[in-house]
């Protein structure tokens, strides 16, 4: 039980997929304009990660080594398609907001990276824990980035206005603001890590 807890917790800070491993940055930056989008993307990616991790750790002994990457990609793409159809049916507004970044979860390096580096070598139980931890780390990172960008750039929190008289700095809602926020957050993480060791 202790080991599983460790697998779960490592994804949140120590091996945070966004800030430490620098995986899956494209969707992180693109959809983090508002917190609701960030949350939606986080949940979608977590679902795909969970599904693909379980499936890949189940088939890891059947798949020949040389064609494993295409096999993994097909598995991931299947789960992405499920997510996309689900989102279209139950939350069309979110689907419109996330746009092409939903199908692009397929090429999110985080999902393939975990499949290759972790799920293809570990038991199903550990893979589930790993997927949940990584997914949570990814979602938290997305919420952090989109929170900063939404509060500074639009002056709202999950769509609710916080301070009436605040004049938003719109640059944070634009692409360059996203790059700036992630650059600064990454250096902050680096600073904290250096302090610890």
């Amino acid at each position: 039980m202790k080991l599983e807890r460790k697998e779960f917790i490592k994804g949140i800070i120590k091996e945070n997929p966004t800030f430490v491993l620098a995986l899956g940055l494209c969707p992180t930056l693109a959809v983090s304009t508002a917190m609701s989008n960030g949350l939606g993307m986080g949940i979608a990616a977590t679902f795909v990660l969970l599904g693909s991790n379980i499936f890949i750790s189940l088939i890891k002994n059947i798949v020949p080594d040389r064609i494993r990457i295409p096999c993994y990609i097909v598995v991931i793409a299947t789960f992405v398609t499920i997510t996309e159809l689900f989102m279209k049916a139950y939350s069309p507004a979110l689907n419109r907001a996330l746009g092409i970044y939903v199908p692009l979860i397929v090429v999110n390096c985080m999902v393939l990276g975990r499949a290759e580096a972790y799920a293809s070598k570990s038991s199903v139980k550990n893979s589930i824990m790993d997927a949940l931890g990584m997914g949570l780390g990814f979602t938290l990172a997305l919420l952090l980035i989109s929170g900063i960008r939404e509060i500074l750039g639009l002056g709202t929190f999950f769509g609710y206005k916080i301070i009436k008289s605040y004049e938003p700095m719109f640059i944070f809602a634009l692409p360059s603001g996203a790059l700036l926020v992630i650059g600064l957050l990454m250096s902050l993480f680096g600073l904290l890590k250096n302090k610890k060791t």
Binding site: A22, A178, L180
Partner: peptide
């Protein structure tokens, strides 16, 4: 702490 990735992102910004 800014070297490599963080710096690249700030430049990209």
């Amino acid at each position: 702490c800014v070297k490599e990735f963080p710096l690249a992102f700030i430049i990209a910004s």
